[in-house]
C-alpha cells in the first residue's frame, strides 16, 4: 500500500528543502512591496486564449467536416480520422481490447484500429497526456465555466468546498474495465460525457445530452469538477501517458514568491503542491500526469517561475523510484 502512495505522491515523499529566506523572495530582491510587484507584472491570458481558440477550432472542425463534407476530421472524439489517419479514444479502445480478447473478436479489429490507438497514445505522449482535457475535450470547456460559477456560488453562500480523495479515479479506471469485461458492454461509453457531447455537437443532440447537462449541473451546484477529477477514466489514461511525457509545466524555486495565485487558478491544484512555502523538495519541479497543460498558472505567475518545459527523466513518476532512492541516499549522507 505504501508503495502505491509513494508512487502517487512522487517527489512529495522526499525531504523538503529549507524554506526560502525573506531576502531571497523576488519582490524583496527588486526592493518592492508585494502588491507593487504584482501590479508591475500584470496577468495575461495568452495561454488561456490560445487554448480556447484551439478547443473551439477542433470541435468546429468536426462539425464543419461532417456538414460540409470536407473530409478533414471525420468521426467523433470516440474515434476519428484526420486526413485519412485514424485516431482512437484510448480508453474506449482499452475496453474494446479487454472484451474482444475474452470473446476472440480481437482478430477482427482492423489495422486502422491499431494505428489509431498507437497514433493517439504517441501524440499525447509528445504533448503531455492530459493536454487532451484542456485543449480538446468539449466537456472540459463547459466544466471550466461551470467551475467558475461553482466558485462564485460557494463564495456567495459561504459554503465550504467538499472534496474527495482524487485517487478514486484509478479505482474507476480499473473498475470500468472490469465492468466492461464482465458485462461485455462498453458501459463507460454509455455514460461518457466526452463521447456524448462530441456526438451531440456533430450529429445533433438527443436524450443522452440531458445526462451531460445533469452532470454539469451537479458539478456547478454539487461537487466541484466531480466527473473530471474523480471519475473520468479517459483523463486517467492520458494522465498515465502524461507521466511519461517529456513536456510539462516547469517550476523554478528560486524565482517563486510563494504567493500561490497559481494554485488558485489551477484546475488540478494538487499538481502544484510544490509552490507552498517550504514544500518544494527540489530546486526544479515538474507537474505530474494530472496536469492538463492548460497554462493558467503560467499566465498568472508574476515572476516567470512557471513555464512549459522539457522534463528531466528522473522527475517523472516511472523513473522516480530509482531517482528518489538515489536522492534519499544523498540526503541521508548530508544529514
Amino acid at each position: 500500500m505504501s508503495f502505491i502512495f509513494d508512487w502517487l505522491t512522487g517527489d512529495k515523499s522526499l525531504k523538503p528543502l529549507p524554506p526560502k529566506k525573506k531576502e531571497d523572495l523576488p519582490y524583496v530582491k527588486e526592493g518592492l512591496k508585494f502588491n507593487e510587484w504584482k501590479e508591475k507584472n500584470p496577468n495575461t491570458h495568452k495561454w488561456r486564449n490560445r487554448r480556447w481558440a484551439f478547443l473551439i477550432f477542433i470541435n468546429l472542425l468536426f462539425i464543419v467536416s461532417y456538414h460540409m463534407g470536407l473530409g478533414i476530421l471525420e468521426g467523433s472524439l470516440s474515434g476519428s480520422r484526420l486526413l485519412g489517419i485514424y485516431l482512437m479514444d484510448p480508453y474506449n479502445s482499452s475496453q474494446e481490447l479487454v472484451i474482444s480478447s475474452k470473446t476472440g473478436f480481437i482478430s477482427h479489429l482492423t489495422t486502422n484500429f491499431w494505428i489509431g490507438f498507437f497514433v493517439i497514445l504517441s501524440f499525447y505522449w509528445l504533448v503531455g497526456g492530459r493536454a487532451f482535457c484542456s485543449w480538446v475535450c468539449p466537456y472540459h470547456f463547459f466544466a471550466e465555466w461551470g467551475e467558475k460559477v461553482h466558485d462564485y456560488i460557494l463564495k456567495k453562500r459561504k459554503i465550504r468546498e467538499k472534496t474527495y480523495d482524487i485517487t478514486v479515479k484509478y479505482v474507476f479506471w480499473i473498475g470500468f474495465l472490469v465492468v466492461a469485461f464482465l458485462t461485455q458492454q462498453l458501459v463507460f461509453e454509455d455514460l461518457n460525457p466526452v463521447g456524448i457531447l462530441s456526438r451531440s455537437l456533430i450529429y445533433g443532440p438527443g436524450l443522452a445530452t440531458i445526462w451531460v447537462a445533469l452532470l454539469l449541473a451537479y458539478e456547478i451546484f454539487g461537487i466541484k469538477r466531480f466527473w473530471c477529477r474523480y471519475v473520468c477514466p479517459i483523463g486517467v489514461t492520458y494522465s498515465f501517458v502524461g507521466d511519461l511525457s517529456p513536456l510539462s509545466v516547469k517550476f523554478e524555486l528560486d524565482k517563486c514568491a510563494h504567493c500561490r495565485d497559481c494554485q488558485d487558478v489551477c484546475l488540478v491544484p494538487h499538481e502544484l503542491w510544490f509552490v507552498k512555502k517550504g514544500a518544494a523538495t527540489r530546486e526544479v519541479h515538474f507537474t505530474g500526469g494530472d496536469c492538463t497543460k492548460c497554462g493558467l498558472c503560467i499566465d498568472v505567475c508574476y515572476s516567470g517561475a512557471l513555464s512549459f518545459g522539457l522534463k528531466d527523466w528522473t522527475t517523472n513518476r516511472w523513473g522516480y523510484k530509482i531517482a528518489t532512492k538515489m536522492l534519499k541516499g544523498k540526503q541521508a549522507e548530508q544529514g
Binding site: 474515434g79 482512437m88 479502445s93 462498453l186 436524450l207
Partner: peptide, 24 residues
C-alpha cells in the same frame, strides 16, 4: 454491442445518409 465504439464514421461516409445513430 461492444465492437461498435460509436464514432459515427459510417454515418459520415454513407453517400445517401441512410445510417443514423440510435439514441437512449
Amino acid at each position: 454491442l461492444y465492437a461498435c465504439i460509436k464514432c459515427g464514421l459510417c454515418v459520415q461516409i454513407c453517400p445517401v445518409h441512410a445510417i443514423k445513430l440510435a439514441d437512449w
